[in-house]
Design a binder for these strands. Structure first.
Length: 565
RNA sequence: GAUUUGGUAGCUCAGUCGGUAGAGCAUAUCCCUUUUAAGGAUAGGGUCCUGGGUUCGAAUCCCAGCCAGAUCACCA
């Protein structure tokens, strides 16, 4: 691919050479003493103030000996005014006529020294006294423009290109940059909240010998020195709980987790989760805590608890609705399943058109009913509590009902945002639940959990009563930035590898072989000799011409194909 | 994984019945001293996603593939 440059790329490379010939280094070493950002100029404008700014040249409107340009820095854009005779005080006007007008391009980084003034049209601008090229750009940026009515022209909008070249997306699409700034603020706000409560931010292994804490297919890799398989973590739960065993009152981690599963608009192979464990608490406390945390983040980052998500308006103002899974099913289907056995549950599923199979036990059936009939209805933040036991092998049995667990999921806009337990701390029960998972794995459930005997050993030393919660950071960012796909809140979402540049095609090779034997041939004869179809011959010829390997010459009545040296 | 839509210039997109590839912006050259998506004139710029097929002839029709989007399924 690298051999073919577009006309615009060639022009910029020529400009580079010309700049060097003029003694201008297009990539200077020295720092540039920036003292002002574009936002300072627009927000705290002082007529005549001297400023030094730097950024990318993003637009130029040249009017003979005067010109308006726009410089974009990290905070936005500002207009700068170049006047030939101010930049070139003497007779030599090269700096304006050649360097500025011809050798600079959109996308170049320049530094500008000048003073603030207001144009006749009222635009706050900088009158340039001196400018310097800081870095030359060799590829043209897409240049979306917004007209006076707010319509975007030539938007850089193709998702494939935007995700693969996120750097371009960020330069050109202000709203994309804003999304990622908001993401950073959300994480900072959450971290501040957790720290303010006195909890300790920790780091636990990403490479794990036993991937635990969730039901998911892991990525596997290999450690050479130890000669063992290692897995990329699917959750950090089991390590954080070991730390509670070790005596910390509250630990949390912002964790990249990795799951070797499908990719779509809500799933990326690596994603971010915040997990927190606090000793001497239960899941009721954790609901209060989660509410407070989310309300705080909304107020800090958005300045409001009302958030627009798609067509819905969602309020993160406390308190959130709380409802048990069984009551939720009753609410949305009118059916009370509280005393049903497995057979009755299957009949209920059949009646409600909920798909199930024979391997599903009671818990799975209830979960299926909830997922199909209820989940999507919870637009406003709602805690769904008390999940069936077999779905939750790390969660403590419910204090009032041994078939349930003390677990909640927080639903927002019909999707799961957070998941929490009163943590199971009975080591014997934990070991039995792991063994049950192992039996499921043997039956072919590829999401069943591995048995982590060291974790059981840790529990045997004793873990205080603890509540833990995990919240999907990517999903939270999607909600708070009103994006419906995870790719929009990840800088570099996973993509399939880009296609490699093509070698010569078979048709091209055939033609080239013939041409090497006979460097000049009449076209018709060449085509016959290749025995290619019309289309194959045509594309082959086009391809070779493109590569500069052959040339077609026309004299009088005949066309000849000539091999190029 | 299923269904579906799309892939044409640096960017955004047209392209009729199968008959030499189009526009705007961007770029280049020339003119122009206060403009605001776009000053004027002229010019250059194409692997029409890839491969095969049908055809005298394919961006266009057919088949296969690649990539992406959307919807659905799956997802502690």
């Amino acid at each position: 691919m690298s051999q073919h440059l577009s006309e615009q790329e060639l022009v910029r490379r020529e400009s580079l050479t010309k700049l060097r010939a003029l003694g201008i280094n297009p990539y200077p070493q020295a720092l540039y003493p920036v003292n002002t950002l574009s936002r300072d100029i627009t927000e705290n404008f002082v007529e005549g103030k001297k400023v030094i700014i730097a950024g990318r040249l993003m637009a130029r409107r040249i009017q003979g000996n005067a010109s308006f340009a726009e410089i974009q820095d990290s905070e936005g854009r500002v207009q700068v005014y170049f006047k030939r005779d101010e930049i070139c005080e003497g007779e030599d006007k090269t700096l304006y006529n050649e360097v500025y007008k011809k050798l600079l391009d959109n996308g170049d980084f320049i530094g500008v020294e000048g003073e603030l003034f207001t144009t006749q049209v009222g635009e706050k601008s900088i009158r340039v006294k001196k400018f310097i090229l800081l870095s030359k750009s060799l590829k043209p940026l897409p240049l979306p423009k917004i007209d006076s009515e707010g319509n975007v022209h030539d938007a850089f909008s193709d998702p494939e290109l935007r995700y693969r070249r996120r750097y371009v997306d960020l330069v050109v699409n202000e709203h994309v940059k804003a999304t990622f700034i908001k993401r950073s603020k959300i994480i900072t706000s959450m971290r501040n909240f957790l720290n303010s409560k006195g909890y300790l931010e920790v780091e636990t292994p990403i490479l794990q010998a036993i991937p635990g804490g969730a039901a998911a297919r892991p990525f596997i890799t290999h450690h050479n020195a130890l000669d063992i398989p290692l897995y990329l973590r699917i959750a950090n739960e089991l390590y954080l709980k070991r730390l509670i065993v070790g005596g910390f009152d509250g630990v949390y981690e912002f964790a990249k987790d990795f799951r070797n599963e499908g990719m779509d608009r809500t799933h990326n192979p690596e994603f971010t989760q915040m997990e927190i464990y606090v000793s001497y608490k239960d899941y009721h406390w954790m609901m209060d805590f989660t509410e407070e945390m989310l309300e705080t983040i909304c107020n800090e980052v958005l300045g409001t608890t009302t958030v627009k998500i798609g067509n819905n308006e969602v309020s993160f103002k406390r308190p959130f609705k709380r409802i048990s899974m069984i009551d939720a099913i009753k609410e949305h289907t009118g059916i009370d399943i509280v005393d049903m056995d497995q057979i009755q549950l299957r009949e209920t599923c059949k009646k409600l058109n909920v798909a199930f199979d024979d391997s599903m036990g009671k818990g799975k059936l209830i979960d299926e009913l909830f997922g199909e009939k209820c989940e999507a209805n919870y637009i406003q933040p709602t805690f769904i509590t008390d999940y069936p036991k077999e779905m939750s092998p790390l969660c403590k049995e419910h204090r009032d009902n041994p078939e349930l667990t003390e677990r909640f999921e927080l639903m927002v806009n019909g999707k799961e945002l957070a998941n929490a337990y009163t943590e199971l701390n009975d080591p014997i029960d934990q070991k039995e639940r792991f063994e049950e998972q192992a039996r499921l794995a043997e039956k072919g459930d590829d999401e069943a959990m591995f048995i982590d005997m060291d974790f059981v050993r840790a529990l045997e030393y004793g873990m205080p009563p603890t509540s833990g919660m995990g919240i999907g950071i990517d999903r939270l960012c999607m909600f708070l930035t009103n994006n419906s796909s995870i790719q929009e809140v990840l800088f570099f979402p996973q993509m399939k590898p880009e296609k490699k540049a093509l070698e010569l095609s078979e048709a091209e090779k055939t033609i080239l072989t013939l041409m090497k034997a006979t460097p000049k041939m009449e076209l018709g004869a060449l085509k016959n000799a290749t025995r290619l179809s019309g289309k194959q011959f045509d594309t082959g010829m086009k391809g070779l011409s493109k590569h500069g390997l052959i040339k077609v010459e026309v004299n009088d009545e005949a066309k000849f194909c000539v091999l190029q040296a």
